[in-house]
Design a binder for these strands. Structure first.
Lengths: 230, 230
DNA sequence: ACTAAAATCGAACGTTCGCTCGTTAAAGAG
DNA sequence: CTCTTTAACGAGCGAACGTTCGATTTTAGT
């Protein structure tokens, strides 16, 4: 699997994205017709991600958002009840689709090594396909309130669990060396996150996402595999 | 070298820290007596880092800063000419002392492997000793203006160069495998940064900074060493 | 103790913020 | 076309923002 092949999976998921956001936040949204909500929520999310990536969510004013979306101040507030609520909606929405895709990527039939490759590539390609979302989610996570932050941490631990389970299974089947697998997961994630956090660096190094994937896999295999590759 | 031994190096450097900030920004500071400036700049920096880590620099108001430092609004503005200028001062100051310590840690006599170990540990221990500074610098870097952002990128490339040079030297001496050393540096840095970016995770895993250092070195050695360790 | 310089103070200023609400425009049914 | 529901509008609100500046206090040399 390379990035080009993966892209289609994401695009098809993205369409159901703001639809989920509608059903999830129905009670806070004053507009009734689903088609209108989906259309405008998509505009609002996209604009928020754009401005948020440029100057940060806190520095974005509702007047900025109004101009970018083409909606008036009053219209905006028909789709969310406060600025903070908009942030929460975006974060939840991003987390949910991320987790959904990542969990679906793992299969029982595939061996641990194959599964590890799959989740690494899926994580990486997803962040590449939805770069503004990932960057925004990472950077603005600290601005959430205490409850939402707790949920975000739980989500991260769940997705870490997917990696750790694969590593543990691999150790049992003697495919991987024994290690502190939670720690291994942490450093793998660190490398995965760097792809979208330090985008300018990889652009300057002229490394494609497929090349980065191969490189990461070599690093991980070098550390994890019980029997080193030739 | 473990963290306990390293800490003293940092503490001794930290004292000259706000003194440098004074000489560097003398023209923008209205207060004349160096001793007063050093004392209050230290208070201001510390308070900014504290509030900045809690709610972000942009969300910190000058009234927050006034309360935390115990200085009035007017007094604060005797030490910097604007809020943005305060951010720039903090970032420059942090970058400079970071680079200084990192460059001093490398020695000609030591071999590539030893030097690689040293810079990794130095980077990691420094971030541990000055955690709020590192977190703040990383997270608020995106809020800098275009010129300052460019300088920040140049600084990062310089410090990446320290790592890359060691790796290249190691390849020439056949201590390290041939690789894309710039890319190796990038992923090493990603893992180093994760220590202070995802502090809660490592706390939850109950991993000390010394243990993390050893773990990182094993990952890097597994990937870089020409002749695998026993 | 006196005084000039240095440092600190905090009310006040103009601007911008998130958000509301009375009003207007658009959509849809009969 | 009419009437009712739904969506969009944007001027205006009070609060909070960064910043200033004349008044006040502290410091230090004599």
């Amino acid at each position: 699997m390379n990035f080009e092949e993966f892209k289609e999976i994401v695009v098809s998921h993205a369409k159901s994205n703001s639809q989920d956001a509608f059903t999830e936040n129905r009670k806070d949204i004053r507009v009734k017709k689903e088609k209108t909500v989906v259309k405008n929520l998509e505009r609002i999310f996209e604009a928020t991600l754009k401005i948020g990536n440029e100057k940060g969510f806190h520095a974005m004013s509702m007047r900025d958002l109004s101009e970018e979306t083409g909606l008036s101040m009053g219209a905006l507030y028909a789709y969310f009840k406060s600025k903070e609520n908009l942030l929460v909606m975006l974060q939840r929405n991003g987390r949910d689709s991320f987790q959904q895709i990542l969990e679906q990527s793992v299969t029982e039939e595939a061996g641990p090594l194959e599964n590890l490759k799959i989740v690494i590539k899926t994580h990486l390609f997803m962040s590449e396909a939805m770069l503004p979302r990932f960057y925004f989610t990472y950077m603005e996570g600290k601005n959430l309130n205490k409850d939402e932050k707790k949920i975000a941490v739980e989500h991260e631990m769940t997705s870490d669990g997917i990696f750790t389970d694969i590593l543990k299974q691999g150790e049992k089947l003697q495919v991987f060396k024994p290690h502190n697998h939670e720690l291994t997961t942490a450093v793998i994630k660190a490398m995965l996150n760097d792809w979208y956090l330090k985008r300018w660096k990889y652009a300057k190094l002229n490394v494609s996402v497929d090349e980065y994937a191969e490189y990461l896999l070599r690093v991980v295999e070098g550390f994890c595999l019980a029997q080193p590759q030739p």
